[in-house]
């Protein structure tokens, strides 16, 4: 019997491809976001409101990740932006190689912002670097204010928190301030926005912040 010491990161292959994706995006001067949330928090709706607001100001492309169907890419393509759908066929998260393949299907020249909408899941996507500049976690008021405590890794690894569906606050038991302070207890560095895709509230604040990050005037 012999023992071999290995000491390798389990996801080293993914991390290596993510690193290549990041280098490719940097060469094109593209700011890439990885949007994560539980299913139904409103990632695609936020994306639609964002596209309405900023597609005139900045060339933007979208990669959609879903377990099945290209419904989201079709929703996004209606706004006239390049969109590629990744169908994971059961996979519960996007991995860097899937994003690499999707990037190969996009004309990157001239694009300033790339939004990667991950599969709806608050657990697995936190482990997989895709090559993004930062993660945006969306939590909706209907999910309850304890989500950050239940899924700490996701909130810890994100740079931005968007609290969505604020128009529903009168009808739900969630305390939005508790939701925000629970998230900040996990990650004090989070930049927080509060939005409603129904009324449009908060969308401009988030978009202006993003455009400034990408070095574009809104």
């Amino acid at each position: 019997m012999s023992v071999i010491t290995i000491e390798r990161k389990v996801l080293e292959k993914n991390d290596e491809i993510a690193h290549q994706n990041r280098a490719l995006l940097a060469r094109h001067g593209i700011l890439a976001l990885n949007m994560v949330s539980s299913p139904g928090a409103g990632k695609t709706s936020i994306l639609e409101r964002m596209l309405e607001r900023i597609k005139e100001h900045v060339p933007i492309a979208v990669i959609e990740g879903d377990v099945q169907t290209d419904l989201d890419a079709r929703r996004v393509a209606r706004y006239g932006v390049p969109a590629v759908q990744i169908v994971t066929r059961g996979g519960c998260h996007l991995e860097a190689n899937l994003v690499r393949d999707a990037l190969a299907g996009l004309a990157l020249a001239g694009i300033k912002i790339l939004i990667i909408e991950n599969v709806g899941n608050l657990v697995c996507p936190s482990n997989y670097d895709l090559g993004e500049a930062f993660k945006v976690v969306v939590a909706s008021t209907t999910e309850g204010d304890d989500k950050p405590m239940k899924y700490p890794a996701m909130f810890r690894n994100a740079s931005v928190l968007i609290i969505n569906k604020i128009d529903l606050l009168p009808y739900v038991a969630s305390d939005i301030d508790a939701l925000q302070s629970n998230a900040l207890a996990i990650n004090p560095a989070l930049t927080v926005f509060r939005t409603s895709c129904t009324t449009g509230e908060g969308i401009s604040a988030w978009c202006d912040w993003l455009l400034a990050k990408a070095g574009v005037r809104g």
């Binding site: 019997m1 012999s2 023992v3 071999i4 010491t5 290995i6 000491e7 389990v10 482990n127 890794a153």
Partner: peptide, 17 residues
């Protein structure tokens, strides 16, 4: 600063003679 808790590594393997 997080010191530990995010590890996901293969550390060693034992094979038969």
């Amino acid at each position: 600063v997080l010191q530990t808790g995010t590890e996901l590594q293969v550390t060693e393997v034992e094979i038969a003679d």
